[in-house]
């Protein structure tokens, strides 16, 4: 049990008496690369926010590294849905990434030389160092996503949470993007949520389906029945070139 990083026990979340999460149980171990798929409105973002302590569950227990999420989230790098920010906001890539160091730097202090070095490293990992002075809204969706990943990585987290990371990434860039994620998964635990089944690639080691309830699978071989229960309608399983080996087994 020593390497258990996230634990959710019987977690219920309601928005106005409408349940969004129903009795979710989830255990994530160190080094896992978990993909959570489910339809829009199925509670995926809510689940991530519960793990981050941004949403308090109405019932149930949440532990991040054995601590309550407000304390455990220091070790989490979070990449939210990027399509939500103001494209005209006057901020450049460098300032966005430094934001990720806030917890380390603290209130009323300036970013130190060491902070700046860490920001540079994170941008290098995400392959975005050359874009450092660019205004964030002027980048393509995929480039923005890389910046937000750099911002999540800069504090050297042990867990990475990604909310719909592929939504704004150009299809031609997705393979490259998965390579980055795979590289990162060598060093940290990753949880990625997506409404897009094809986004769950060869690199994801485990899959869970979420539509208010969480259907957890040990491996990524997922049955059409499970997908149907999750999406409440027949789902066609499609594979394509960028994810050559991801063939989901039929029962």
């Amino acid at each position: 049990m020593a390497d258990e990083v996230i634990r959710l026990e019987d977690v219920w979340v309601y928005y106005d008496s409408v349940p969004v999460l129903e009795s979710v149980h989830l255990v994530v171990e160190q080094g896992d690369f978990l993909g959570i798929i489910g339809p829009n409105g199925g509670g995926k973002t809510t689940l991530l926010k519960v793990i981050l302590g941004l949403i308090k569950p109405n019932r149930g227990k949440v532990l991040v590294l054995g601590k309550p999420p407000e304390r455990g989230r220091k070790s989490i790098g979070y990449v939210s849905q990027t399509n939500l920010f103001d494209r005209d906001f006057p901020i450049n890539v460098w300032e966005v990434v430094l934001m990720g160091l806030y917890g380390k730097t603290g209130m009323l202090r300036r970013y130190s030389a060491e902070d700046k070095k860490m920001a540079e490293e994170a941008l290098k990992t995400a392959n975005m160092l050359n874009f450092k002075e660019r205004q964030i809204g002027k980048l393509s969706g995929g480039e923005q996503q890389r910046v937000f990943i750099a911002r999540a990585l800069v504090s050297k987290p042990s867990i990475l949470l990604l909310d719909e990371p592929m939504a704004s990434v150009d299809p031609t860039m997705q393979a490259e993007f998965y390579e980055l994620l795979e590289k990162l998964s060598q060093e940290m635990t990753i949880i990625m949520v997506s409404h897009d089944i094809s986004a769950v690639s060869i690199y994801v080691e485990e899959i869970a389906c979420l539509n208010r309830q969480l259907f957890y699978h040990g491996s990524k071989e997922i049955s059409p029945e499970t997908l149907q229960t999750t999406y409440k309608c027949p789902v066609q399983i499609i594979t394509h070139g960028t994810v050559p080996h991801r063939v989901l087994k039929e029962h």
């Binding site: 941004l54 920010f85 906001f89 934001m99 806030y102 917890g103 009323l108 504090s155």
Partner: peptide
């Protein structure tokens, strides 16, 4: 001047700010 980076985080991405500990 004192809270420039805090206000920047608040204005740009309130939710992320909360996650990294900005009040």
């Amino acid at each position: 001047l004192a809270l420039y980076k805090e206000f920047l985080a608040l204005a740009f991405d309130r939710e992320f700010g909360r996650v990294v500990g900005v009040p």
